[in-house]
Amino acid sequence: MRHLLSAGDLDRDKALLILDTAAEMAALSDRSVKKLPTLRGRTVVNLFFEDSTRTRISFELAAKRLSADVINFAAKGSSVSKGESLKDTALTLEAMGADAVVIRHWDSGAPYRLAHADWIGGSVVNAGDGTHEHPTQALLDAYTMRRHLRDGKGALEGVRVGIVGDILHSRVARSNVLLLQTLGAQVTLVAPPTLLPIGIDTWPCEVSYDIESVLPNVDAVMMLRVQQERMQAAYFPTAREYSRLYGLNGDRMRLLPEHAIVLHPGPMNRGMEISAEVADSDRAVMVEQVANGVSVRMAVLYLLLGGAKE
């Protein structure tokens, strides 16, 4: 594995290798000395064209726990705001000897371009591109589900997952559908018709417009953030109507089976797609998702950079 660009690039064995490696990384994180010498002397660049606090910090912590040197490159206040192209930025990073570039970009496909344009020799990790993909988020979600629903072992055969909200703009949903399908889970997407992408019928999943009919039949439900910044058109009449029709409140949470968990990739809009009662309940695993994110990203960086260059 040289790059991680899409959750769809991972076959079952590779996905399980990442999850198993993440489990070992998580066990190491309980120790008093959390640092490992594994990536000493390697340089990881966090190249973030789009605002993100938690993903960047998560990657930064993961790289530092493995003793890599980390450079944070944010578009704001950098040469990018002066008009530098992606290519010139990449050539600069290559000249500085970056072994891996973790890239978040507002354009779908930017990580693919960076990986395949022969600008840089290192690995590329997609940390979210436009409305396309966010593979490490899907991996940490799968890791979290596996821990709660499959005792931390094997794949997710037979696990039923509902993903609710703005599918149209969600890279998290796309990556999750691809990875969960690979791991054998069954996914049902729930959204108003206006927030489903064209061609949804070709995705390997079910689609529903009715959250209350889906909830009793899932083992995990993932609530997506309503992305105000991407809502240039009128996708739904009012925020209150969306919340009433598609939000997860306490009453709806009680429709879930006893063992089911509630996930959210964050940041949450409390009172919008998820009520405070749900967000603060025992079933909500958001805080754990954050911790699991560091372990999963450590696993990805180790598997990409830990061996000889291919």
């Binding site: 198993d20 990384m25 190491l28 594994t38 180790y302 830990g306 061996g307 000889a308």
Partner: peptide, 15 residues
């Protein structure tokens, strides 16, 4: 994760 020959071989799975 503590081996001194990590860079000489393909990435190894963890035990």
């Amino acid at each position: 994760l503590y081996r001194d020959d990590l860079r000489l071989r393909p990435t190894r799975a963890l035990e």
